[in-house]
């Protein structure tokens, strides 16, 4: 093969440029990966340092905060017990998941495996739209429509209760659960579907015995993300949960979840004060809980993957 030395040179310089570009892109990508970790660490450090004042105060401290049941920042001495708020978060989130998980997974199964193509397209865009509605709009619906309806239905004292907030949060967690579960089921190779049908299984048997198990890690991830959405949602619980400080497991009474505490009081605290610091302890608690939920989810997913996707 004859080639002029000029062309050869041109080609080798192009290769060098390409190598350099690849190195730069590689660095940028690893930098953005590390920056995510750096940001997460910075948030944890920021939360902890601001929470330190309350945590180290002899009158307050972590143990008293986590076991105390009264939150009276203006009494003397001030009381910062917030176990009732943790329980409130559990009540509201529990209701939301109890509704959103079965409905969400069932809807995902229908859309992925049974719905005719046209309906599938419509359903998917409606669900995406549901995710885009601002939470304050969901809150309004909760206050004026869902809350009063639930009050009549269950004979509750108030329309603004843990149940009402949980139902509204369920609507907000649904799009996450449906779309991620649907993606997971849709991406199960169609050869498996065909294989099961060809063995004389019905669509439903195929779905139950092959599709859902093969997609289980994705379905689980969708539930965890839905849970994250429900725990962290603030505007809806502030508007709909009723803001009661009472320590109770009842679903038909008002509640004040952790997020509502921070959002409701952060405007009235002195920056750097004890109350300010106590709110950061609440924030830190939320951070740790969501971190643990995500970690647990990751571990389960890893095990699932090892089982199903060698």
């Amino acid at each position: 093969m004859s080639e002029s030395s000029e062309a050869k040179l041109d080609r080798s310089s192009r290769a060098a440029t390409r190598r350099a570009a690849e190195a730069v892109v590689g660095r940028l990508i690893s930098l953005s990966g590390w920056s995510a970790i750096a940001v997460l660490t910075a948030i944890a450090v920021f939360l902890a340092s601001n929470a330190w004042k309350a945590l180290s105060d002899p009158q307050v401290g972590l143990i008293r905060m986590l076991t105390g049941t009264s939150w009276y920042p203006t009494s003397t001495p001030p009381l910062y017990g917030f176990i009732q708020y943790i329980i409130a978060s559990l009540r509201v989130t529990g209701v939301a998941l109890a509704i959103a998980v079965p409905i969400g997974i069932a809807a995902a199964i229908y859309i992925s495996e049974f719905a005719p193509a046209r309906l599938k397209g419509i359903a998917k865009s409606v669900i995406e739209f549901m995710a885009a509605v601002p939470s304050v709009v969901y809150g309004l619906m909760g206050v004026y429509v869902l809350g009063p309806a639930l009050k009549d239905l269950f004979g509750m004292q108030s329309a603004l209760t843990a149940l009402s907030a949980g139902v509204v949060l369920a609507f907000m967690a649904l799009p996450t659960i449906i779309s991620i579960s649907e993606d997971a089921m849709h991406s199960v190779p169609s050869e498996l579907r065909q294989g099961s049908l060809a063995l004389g299984n019905t669509h439903w048997q195929t779905t139950r015995k092959v599709i859902v198990p093969a997609a289980s890690s994705g379905i689980f991830a969708s539930v965890m993300l839905g849970l994250g959405r429900a725990i962290g949602e603030t505007m809806v619980v502030l508007m709909v949960a009723g803001n009661s400080m009472e320590l109770t497991w009842s679903l038909t009474t008002s509640a004040r979840p952790l997020t509502a505490v921070i959002a409701g009081e952060m405007g009235e605290v002195v920056q750097g004060g004890l109350h300010y610091s106590a709110l950061f302890v609440v924030g830190l608690t939320l951070f740790v809980v969501t971190f643990l939920v995500n970690l647990a989810a990751d571990l389960v997913l890893e095990r699932q993957r090892a089982r199903w996707r060698r």
């Binding site: 190779p189 050869e191 498996l192 065909q194 294989g195 099961s196 049908l197 060809a198 063995l199 004389g200 299984n201 015995k209 092959v210 198990p213 093969a214 089982r307 199903w308 996707r309 060698r310």
Partner: peptide, 26 residues
């Protein structure tokens, strides 16, 4: 009908489960 008329596909498509469970599936 598909119990009486089995099919083997172009690409091997075992289910993601044990050898035993694959055979016992049908």
């Amino acid at each position: 009908l598909r119990m009486r008329v089995g099919q083997v596909f172009q690409k091997p498509n075992p289910f993601p489960m044990s050898i035993y469970d694959n055979v016992a599936y049908g």
